[in-house]
């Protein structure tokens, strides 16, 4: 099963808190009037310039084990090694908001409109995260629709560069998935082009497989402190 999905940018535009959350602002903090106005403009610009497109494909668990192995640079043990053998279905995905967004951010910095450029960058990061959840939901719907997973199953995405999966793991992921079809390429240093792109794996199974109980060494070095919150709300077709 392989699908390319193009969606309207409107369906992934973040709200104000979503944008400001990517700027380090405390949750639900009230921004100054000038900042609030700029956030609105940034979201409006994002809606105009984003061209969200994604590709996802189901792969066999044994194949995923090879993709995950990458070039042998993962931190081991890592949470994904523990989660994926318990997953019932496994997929790969890549998504992008397109090149126009990054060009617009660059243009805003070049013309001295850096506060707006910064907030557009934050809005795009938030939108990419929202898009990932849309893609995960589409994948889950597809496997449930053909009876390959029970309707009460949940899904979460995991990306190279996080959870001990080394960023060079993207090379094997790209070889297997081939996201060139939707315009994403991988540079020598494993940098995706366009920049506002995300790639990774989708693991489907009971909600509890995503909960990370053990403290891994990669967690100590990680700057993202939202995993437990994220693992507590995997994508589900039926609200729990």
């Amino acid at each position: 099963m392989r699908e390319v999905c193009r969606i309207s940018p409107d369906s992934i535009l973040p709200d104000r808190d979503g944008v400001l959350g990517h700027t380090g602002m405390a949750p639900r903090a009230e921004p100054a009037a000038g900042v609030a106005r700029l956030v609105e403009r940034a979201v409006e610009l994002l809606g105009r310039h984003a061209r969200p497109v994604a590709v996802f494909e189901e792969i066999a668990p044994s194949e995923f084990a090879q993709v995950l192995e990458g070039e042998g640079s993962n931190v081991s043990p890592n949470p994904i090694e523990a989660i994926h053998p318990r997953a019932e279905r496994t997929g790969l995905f890549a998504l992008t908001l397109g090149r126009e967004v990054q060009d617009e951010i660059g243009a805003l910095f070049e013309t001295g409109e850096f506060p707006l450029g910064y907030l557009l960058d934050a809005a795009a990061s938030a939108a990419a995260g929202r898009f990932a959840r849309v893609v995960v939901a589409r994948f889950l719907e597809a496997v449930v629709a053909r009876g390959a997973a029970a309707p009460d199953r949940t899904a979460l995405d995991y990306s190279p560069g996080y959870c001990g999966w080394h960023v060079t793991g993207q090379r094997r992921l790209f070889e297997r998935l081939g996201p060139g079809e939707i315009g994403i390429s991988l540079g020598e240093s494993c940098l995706m082009d366009p920049l506002k792109s995300v790639s990774g794996a989708i693991l489907v199974g009971p909600a509890e497989i995503h909960r990370i109980e053990a403290a891994y060494s990669c967690c100590a070095a990680c700057s993202d402190h939202h995993c437990r919150e994220r693992a507590g709300r995997p994508v589900a077709l039926r609200p729990s």
Binding site: L20, T23, A29, P31, G34, G112, P115
Partner: peptide
């Protein structure tokens, strides 16, 4: 008390 977007707006005003 304030965050990076506020500082950037201030920097733009300074410039």
């Amino acid at each position: 008390e304030i965050f990076l977007p506020d500082v950037l707006l201030a920097a733009k005003a300074m410039i």
